[in-house]
Write a protein that binds this DNA or RNA. Structure first.
Length: 211
DNA sequence: CTCCCGATAT
DNA sequence: ATATCAGGAG
C-alpha cells in the first residue's frame, strides 16, 4: 500500500472518530503532579505509576515536601516503578530547581522544562500539551510504534516521528492525536501481538497482518 | 550505544 | 522465560 496524504487524512479521521473520548491515563491534580507522574512513567505501566503517585502525593504533594522527605525515603516510595535510583535522583534535583528558581511552580516554557533533570523531549511535550494546553505531540513508545506501522509518520527516532506527525495532523488536533495513538497502541496495535483483525484502521494500514 | 530496574503480560 | 512498559542521561 502506498501512503498518500489522502490516506493519512483518512487514518486521522478514523482515529478521531474512534478515540474522541479518551483522556490521560495518568492521574494528576496539577502541573507538578503531572510532571512527576510522567518522569515516573518511563519503562513502567500507567497503572503502576498511578498506584505509586497516589501514595507519594498523599505524603508529599509539592516540591518542598518532596525535598523535606529526603532521597532515601523517596526511593522507597517509587521503587515499584523501576529505574528507581535514577528517577529518585532526578525528581529530587528537579524539585530543588522548582523550589529555588520557580517558586515551587512548574515552568511553562518548553526549553526550560527540557533542562530539568529527568525531563526529556517526551516529558516536556506531555506537560506542555496536557498541563498547559498548548499544541504539542509527545512521542512515547506507543506513538512511535503506531505511527511507524501506519506510516502516518515514519522515523528512526522519536523526534523524526514527532516532526512527521506535526505535518500529517492539523495543529488543533495535536494534543488529542497524542492520546488517540497511545490508546490505539495499548488496546489494538500492541507491541507484541497486535489485533489486526479487529483494527478499525485495517483498511488503511500498510502493516496489517505483517507485524 | 549502554545502563538504569521492578512489575506485568504473554 | 522473556518482552514490554506514557524514557532519559552519560
Amino acid at each position: 500500500m502506498r501512503i498518500t496524504k489522502k490516506i493519512k487524512a483518512e487514518q486521522v479521521a478514523i482515529l478521531e472518530a474512534v478515540y474522541s473520548d479518551v483522556k490521560p491515563a495518568l492521574r494528576f491534580r496539577n502541573p507538578f503532579e503531572l510532571l512527576i507522574a510522567v518522569i515516573l512513567s518511563a519503562q513502567c505501566t500507567d497503572v503502576r505509576v498511578n498506584i505509586t503517585t497516589e501514595r507519594l502525593f498523599a505524603k508529599a504533594p509539592d516540591a518542598e515536601a518532596i525535598i523535606a522527605m529526603g532521597l532515601a525515603e523517596l526511593e522507597k516510595e517509587i521503587k515499584d516503578c523501576g529505574l528507581f535510583r535514577n528517577k529518585a535522583k532526578n525528581i529530587m534535583a528537579t524539585c530543588h530547581i522548582l523550589a529555588e528558581e520557580f517558586g515551587g511552580q512548574v515552568p511553562e516554557d518548553f526549553d526550560t522544562l527540557l533542562k530539568l533533570p529527568g525531563v526529556g523531549r517526551k516529558t516536556a511535550n506531555v506537560v506542555t500539551s496536557i498541563a498547559f494546553n498548548r499544541p504539542a505531540i509527545a512521542v512515547d513508545t506507543h506513538v512511535f510504534r503506531v505511527s511507524n506501522r501506519l506510516k502516518l509518520a515514519v522515523g528512526e527516532t522519536p523526534l523524526e516521528v514527532e516532526e512527521g506527525l506535526m505535518k500529517a495532523i492539523p495543529q488543533t488536533l495535536w494534543s488529542q492525536a497524542h492520546h488517540w495513538l497511545i490508546w490505539h497502541g495499548r488496546r489494538v496495535c500492541k507491541a507484541r501481538k497486535p489485533l489486526c483483525e479487529e483494527c478499525p484502521l485495517g483498511e488503511v494500514c500498510p502493516s496489517r497482518g505483517r507485524v
